[in-house]
C-alpha cells in the first residue's frame, strides 16, 4: 500500500528512521535528478541527495510539510546543490552559476537598487505575482532556467524552440520582470 506524504512526515516527526528510507525510495531519483541538473556530476548529485535527507531530518520538526513534501525536499536539494557548486570551484558548473547569477542580476538591477535593502520575502512574492500573470509556458521556462538551473539548449530542445529564440524569450521575460519590480517599487 502506498504511504501518503503526510504519513511520511509523521514518521519524521516521530523520529522513525524508516522515514528516510521510504523518502529515498519514493523521491530519491527525482531529487538526484534535480541535483544532477544543477551540479552536472552524478557522484555529487548522490551526495547532495543524501544531504537532503539529513537536512529534512533536521528541519522536521519544526517544519511539517504534509501537503508539499516533494517541494520541501526539492528546495533543500536545490540549495544544497548550488552551495556545493559555489564552495567547490572544481565542479564544472561553477562558471555556469556565475552566468545564471548575472542573468538574475538583470532582474533586480536598477538605478536605486544599489542603495536599497531589498526585502527578500516581498521580492519573492512579487516575482510570483509577475510569473502568475505570464502564460503557463513562460512561467515554466523561467522556473526551468532559474529554479532548476537547466541549460537553455536542453530547455529549447524540450519545448521545440531554437536556442536563440529561447534566449530572446528569457531575455524579454527578465526585462519585463525588472520593469514590473521597478513599477511596484520593489527595487
Amino acid at each position: 500500500m502506498k504511504i501518503a506524504d503526510s504519513d511520511i512526515v509523521d514518521m519524521f516527526l516521530k523520529r522513525n528512521e524508516d522515514a528516510i528510507r521510504i523518502t529515498s525510495e519514493r523521491y530519491g531519483s527525482r531529487l538526484r535528478s534535480i541535483s544532477f541538473r544543477i551540479t552536472g556530476n552524478i557522484q555529487t548529485a548522490e551526495e547532495c541527495e543524501n544531504d537532503t535527507y539529513l537536512e529534512a531530518w533536521k528541519r522536521i520538526p519544526p517544519s511539517e510539510p504534509r501537503t508539499y513534501f516533494m517541494t520541501f525536499l526539492s528546495r533543500i536539494a536545490r540549495t544544497i546543490s548550488i552551495n556545493r557548486i559555489v564552495s567547490d570551484h572544481r565542479l564544472k558548473r561553477f562558471a555556469y552559476v556565475e552566468e545564471l547569477s548575472s542573468e538574475m542580476e538583470q532582474c533586480i538591477a536598477s538605478s536605486s537598487s544599489a542603495e536599497k535593502e531589498l526585502d527578500a520575502k516581498l521580492l519573492l512574492e512579487s516575482i510570483s505575482i509577475f510569473l502568475k500573470k505570464q502564460s503557463k509556458e513562460k512561467r515554466i521556462l523561467f522556473m526551468r532556467r532559474y529554479y532548476y538551473l537547466e541549460k537553455t539548449s536542453i530547455i529549447a530542445k524540450q519545448f521545440g524552440y531554437n536556442e536563440s529564440s529561447l534566449r530572446s524569450i528569457l531575455f524579454r521575460l527578465r526585462k519585463e520582470l525588472r520593469d514590473y519590480l521597478e513599477k511596484e517599487a520593489i527595487i
Partner: peptide, 29 residues
C-alpha cells in the same frame, strides 16, 4: 542583494510554481 543572492533565494519560490514546472519534468520521462 545581487544576482547570486536572488538565485539562492529562488529556492524559496512559490510552491505552486515549483510543482507546476516539476510536473513538466515528470511528463518528459
Amino acid at each position: 542583494m545581487n544576482g547570486k543572492d536572488l538565485l539562492f533565494l529562488m529556492s524559496d519560490a512559490d510552491s505552486e510554481l515549483i510543482e507546476e514546472s516539476e510536473i513538466v519534468l515528470d511528463t518528459s520521462k
